[in-house]
Structures are given as structure tokens and as C-alpha cells.
Amino acid sequence: MKAYEIGPQTGLNSLRLVERDTLMPDQGEVAIKVHAACLNHRDLLTLKGQYGPMKAEDRIPLSDGVGSVVALGENVSGIATGQRVIAPNFVTWLGGKFTPAIFGQDLGISRDGWLAETIILRADAVIAVPDNVSDDVAATLAAAGSTIWHCISAFGGLQKGDLVLTLGTGGISILTLQIAKALGAEVAITSSSNDKLDRCKVMGADYCVNYRDNAEWATALMTETGGRGADIVVDTAGLNSVEQSIAACAPNGRIALIGGLSGEPEKAPQMGGIIGKNLTLKGITAGSRSMLCDVVDLISRENIEPLIDKKFTFDDAPAAFAYLESGDHIGKVMITF
């Protein structure tokens, strides 16, 4: 089978196409023919050697994907060949509380991911894709969807009418907009592009702030909301932006810190506002299989169509990484097989 490996992790040119033996499932596993996969920012960092310790050079990347079951290992029940499935990127976190042990089985990082013609997964991790959910939709959901559910539901305790603030217009932020609106929330979103913000308004965003035009974007948001502020913040930017996330919060708000797109801060952020507003800040990696099941149910029930900015063929996968790095996208970048 054909697959991509992350190589020496010296940059995007580390990605290499290889030929491997066809994979067969062991006991308790299933083999899946991959239909489509999606990229996340951490896939870029991995190729650059900037996502934790260096990985094995033969690691297959990508945490999000969808495919059909082509073979069953021994003692597998409840799954049929031909069934379309997805899985959480932490394949051993089926439910319950987070534990650091889940990092040992992280698709695309500590375990081979979706950028191959065939992937082997634990049978107890996979989730059947409903008939009314297309491959394009399903391929966007695993890492992004479970993370969002962890942020706004499991941690954020979202209630109808809450205001959710999400930063930027990448895949997680756009899907946050769609999921939060489906749950009855209002949504605020930031971007450096007015064109992207205009598209977000069409998708239902209630408040839009251009952080390039408004360096103090939290102040601009508070003005737009009449001083209300956000009940839940999905912060993809990280510590360079957390002071403004705090400033943009309503009293008793919850900040889910899930990324570091703004890079490392030059100085320690001032966090006193957490006490002054009685805020809660939590670091969140992704979500469990149980959380992803809730997302799939909502997507199916509400017929949500996650925004896919651009598709690339499997053979053109390096161009997909380059496009994601350019920052020109809004929503997800997909590779089809």
C-alpha cells in the first residue's frame, strides 16, 4: 500500500511517499480502507519537529479521517465489512476522565495515522458513520469535533443563549461556530480578514472582530456585545492571546485553551483577570470516543456541513500541507483517496 511518512521532521519537505506491505488486523482490530483525511495545525508542527519530542521517521501522519472496514481481526463483533467508520485520535480514550496514558495511542503522533491507503484501528475505538453523513463531513470530525465538544459541552457546560467566542477561522473555529449555533448559542469569531468574517456572518456568526484592524480586539468585542462578554472561549491562539481572552470574558466565564497558533509569549501573561471575573481556564487536548459520538449524533441530527476550504488528491498531499501553512484557508483542508 502507499503511505506518507513524516521523515526527519526538518520541515514540510520531510513528508515522503513510501510503499508498504498491506496491513492486516490483529485480534481486536479492524483494517480500514481510507476514503478521505483532513489536516490539523499540529500536523504542520510535527513535520517541523515542533510538536513534542521527535517522532519515529516512519510515522504516518494525520489524526482525522474516514474509511470503510475491509477486514476484521479475531474477536471483533458489532462491526461489519463495508461499514464506514471514524475514530477519535486518542484511540484508547473511550470515555471517562482524561489520563496522560492516552498520549501513547495518538493517531498521527504516537501511532500511525490516516495518510495511507489502509489504517489499522482498535475495533472498540471506531464509530459507525450514519448514512446521512457524507465522507466529506465525517473526515472533518474526529480531532476537531471531539475537541470542540470537550470545550463547549463537557467543560463549558454550554446553555442555550450563551455567547461562545472562538479565535480565528481555521477548521476548529469554523466547526465551533456551526456546533455552537446548532446548540442554541450565540457566537463571536475573530479573523485578520474581513472577507473571512463576511463568510462567517453568512454562516451565522453574531459578532465578528478583525484583530488586525483592532489590536485590542477584546475591547472591540465588549463594545459590540454591549459589555456582555463571552461565556465560553475556545482559544486556539495560546498564551500570547490569553490576556485578551480573559478581557473578553463575562463574569464566571470558561476559557478552553487548546492551541498555540500565536506562538510563545515574550513575557508571562497577566492572569489577574481570572480572579477578578471568577473565570475558569482549562487546557484541553482533544476529546474521548464518547464525546465524539455526541458530535456525530448532533451532526447527523442537524445536518451540519463542516466547511471544507480545499481538497487535494492523495498524490498531491504535500501541496495540502503547504496550503494549510499559508493560512489562506477557512475551515478544513482535505486529502481525498
Rank of each mutant, 00 (worst) to 15 (best):
A116R: 10
T285L: 15
L165K: 11
E243Q: 14
A248T: 09
F337M: 14
P8S: 04
F155Q: 12
D135F: 06
A218D: 14
T190V: 09
S262E: 10
H41F: 15
L141K: 09
P306Q: 06
I6P: 01
A125T: 03
A205T: 05
T313H: 09
G287K: 09
T313M: 10
Y211T: 02
A286M: 13
Q159V: 05
M203L: 15
R111G: 00
G263M: 15
S290T: 13
P318N: 12
P265I: 13
A71T: 05
L44C: 03
I109P: 00
H41V: 07
N214G: 01
L62H: 02
A80E: 15
L158H: 04
V137I: 15
I284G: 00
G229I: 14
A205V: 10
I304F: 03
A31Q: 12
K97D: 14
P61W: 09
E74I: 01
I32F: 01
G283P: 02
I120S: 00
N252E: 13
S192T: 15
N132F: 02
N40V: 09
A143W: 09
A125L: 12
C151H: 03
N75T: 04
G283W: 11
G204Y: 11
S146G: 01
A3N: 05
I60E: 03
G52T: 06
I120F: 02
M54G: 05
T118K: 13
L44A: 02
G49D: 06
Q159P: 00
E264Y: 11
A87I: 12
N40M: 10
P61H: 05
V66G: 00
I258P: 02
Q178A: 02
G49K: 11
N40D: 06
K2L: 15
S241F: 10
A182T: 06
I232Q: 03
G253C: 08
T10P: 01
Q50A: 09
G276H: 14
G108Y: 09
D213H: 12
T223W: 09
D297Q: 15
I152E: 01
M24K: 15
D328M: 12
G287P: 04
T313K: 13
V333G: 00
D162L: 07
G96P: 05
N303W: 08
Q105K: 15
L62Q: 04
T280H: 11
T140S: 04
R228M: 10
A87C: 05
T219D: 12
L94Q: 09
D135G: 00
L44Q: 05
V333M: 07
E186K: 15
E302Y: 07
V295P: 00
C151W: 04
N214S: 07
L197P: 00
R59Q: 11
Y51R: 10
R122I: 02
C151T: 06
C200L: 05
L107E: 03
E186D: 12
G67V: 06
T166P: 02
I335N: 02
K2E: 09
E325G: 00
W114H: 11
I109M: 06
E29C: 03
Q178V: 04
A143L: 15
I120K: 07
E325W: 05
C200V: 07
A138K: 07
L39C: 01
E74H: 06
V69H: 04
N278Q: 13
Q27Y: 14
A215C: 01
A230Q: 11
I86R: 04
I189E: 06
N194Y: 03
K160N: 05
A125Q: 10
K310S: 07
A317V: 09
A36I: 10
